[in-house]
Structures are given as structure tokens and as C-alpha cells.
Simulated assay, not measured.
Amino acid sequence: MSAGGGPAWSFRGGEWFGIFGPSATVVLPPSEKDRVARLWELVDDGAGFDETLDALISAGLRELPGFVLVSDDDSETKVVIRGAARVHLATGAEVVHVEGDDATTWVERSVRGVTRVRIEVADEAEPAEALDGVLDGGLVRLASAEHPPAVEEAEPFVEVEPEDVADHDGLTRAPETVPVDLVAPREPGIPGQPPAPPVTARPVARLLLPDGDTVDVDRSVLVGRAPEASRIVTEGEPRLVAVESPHQEVSSTHLEVRPGSGADHGCAVATDLGSTNGSVVVQPGLPPEDLRPGVTVQLVPGAVVDLGDGVSIEVIDA
């Protein structure tokens, strides 16, 4: 498996949270959204197996119904899995199948020479509703993920002769063939969310920044201490807006504001990108609302998004 700037994964949209970093991948069930932002910051900063596992179980396992952790250490791939999830590790000669178990603390395996990994955490959505993509770091909502990315020309995941292969529980069984997914072209916007046009002819709104400058929302606008376009799947060049954060409360790539699509067409929409301290939006006449990571919210003129550390962004008419 590749290292460096982060291994590339293909994914199929679903309900679970997938957190991808340069040294570790974590997948959490929908019930664990409160853990997502903290773990994303950790994993994105390059945390490895031990540090990530410690963070996962720091509050105890009783309230953590399931998770998947996959990490590389030299030529060894480590997997820890709990709950309703499966990981398939191909080594070229065989496939090692690792399955979670609600009745145990967790299942852990270390496998050398892994050439392909597939994570399955739920039944995949129907093709008409799923959003497929490829990314090398960040946060997505998924049902499955595969590294290296599945491609249309690829052979099936691995197909081996029906001979006994050691399973994670010490028993033996005939290995299975795991089919490969076909990956659709990358869509602009947040993975797992409806696609948005990369650039609109006219801005749907403007953002009033703390320093008094304004930014047109005619494409994806990424706001943070040091925003990076690679943190989300996007098409075209987004606008990068850096803001001051004296106490480091604003994440590097904290928030995306972009033109909406579908029912949100003609409006600006905002998505918290798994920030450490979160984002709060106040719409005119409504109480404050916490933005959930990866969940898009329509913004009306007069709305204010608070990123913390004194950084507030107001939405004004275009």
C-alpha cells in the first residue's frame, strides 16, 4: 500500500463516516458523528496505528458499537475491527477476510505483503442514489472503500483457487471472490453529497469576512487557517480564503460554502469539513444551529456562520 501524501481510495456512498489520512484510515457508524471531527484532525495530521487506536477507545468501548481501523507499518498492514463491518486483504496468493463481532472486544489482524484492501460496512446504496469517487485524504460518507482505487478496467478484486485460507479466528474456510466496484467520474463538492456546478455564471451570494473583504460564491469557497483544495473532492479551482485564528480554534480547512444544486439551486450552501471545534450558523429569526460534519445546510441572506476564535462570516446578497 502506498505512503507519503496519503494512499488513494475509491468509495461508494453510504451512511458510515470514512476518515482517510496519510498513515491511517478510520470508519465509524452514523451514530458516532460526535467523534468524527476530533478523529479527522488526528488522522489528517498523520497519526499512526497506536495513536489512532488509543483515541478511538479512550472513552471506552461500551459506547462504541463498531469501527474499522486500517494502518500501514512498513510492509505490514494492521486491521482492527468491531461490529457490523468486514475487511478483505489481498496478498496476491490469497484473500484474508476479517469480520467484526459484536460479542468480542474487537478483532485484530496483521498481514504482510498486502496489495489491495476493501472495507465494507453496510449494504451499498442503489446505483442511482450512490455517489462514487476517489480521494487521497479527507472525510466521506460511505458504504465501502477500496485501495488502490477500483477502476473500470480492473480485474476482479482477487480470485483464488478453492483451498483453505487461515481466517481471523484461527479457523479455515475456502476464500471468497470479492468483486470490484466500478468508479464513476469524480463529482464536484463534498463526497457523499449531491454534486454542485463547479462555477456559476453569476454568484449566488457573497461572503462578508471579518476583515471587511467580500468573496463571491460562484464556485466552491474553502475557508480556514490554511485551506487546501485537496481536502475535498472538487472540480475546477475553488476559492481559498485564509482567516486569522490566534488560538488555533479554526481548522486548516474548516468550512466549504458553494452554490447549491437541486432544491438549493440559486442559493449558497455551507458544509462543515470535520473541523475540530465545529461551526455554528445563525439564520435570521432562528436559533443557532450546529453544523454537522459533511451535512450541507442552505444559507439565506443575513445568515452568519461562526467558526470560533472570533471568526464569523456573514452571507449577503450577490
Rank of each mutant, 00 (worst) to 15 (best):
G266R: 07
D101H: 04
G285Y: 07
G192H: 10
A59C: 10
P191R: 11
F157M: 07
G14S: 07
S230Q: 09
V151G: 12
D101A: 11
D123Q: 13
R202M: 12
S10E: 04
T276C: 06
T105H: 00
T276D: 01
P287W: 06
T52D: 04
L28N: 12
R116Y: 01
D317A: 14
E63Y: 07
L139M: 11
T172I: 03
V241K: 09
T271K: 05
R219S: 07
V140C: 11
R292P: 05
S2K: 04
L142D: 01
V87N: 05
E32S: 15
V26E: 07
I190Q: 15
H254P: 08
R38E: 13
G192F: 01
G100F: 05
A229W: 06
G274H: 05
A128K: 11
L207M: 12
Q283D: 10
G6D: 06
G138C: 02
L39M: 09
V95P: 01
P293Y: 09
S220Q: 12
T200M: 09
S245L: 12
I190R: 03
R38V: 10
P210R: 08
G266L: 08
G266V: 06
V233W: 00
V305H: 11
P227G: 05
P288W: 02
D102G: 05
I313C: 01
S144P: 08
E244G: 10
P148E: 04
N277G: 02
I57R: 15
V183Y: 06
P284D: 01
E120L: 12
D45I: 02
I57K: 14
E146R: 14
R109V: 15
W106R: 03
V158I: 04
P191Y: 04
D34T: 13
A55F: 00
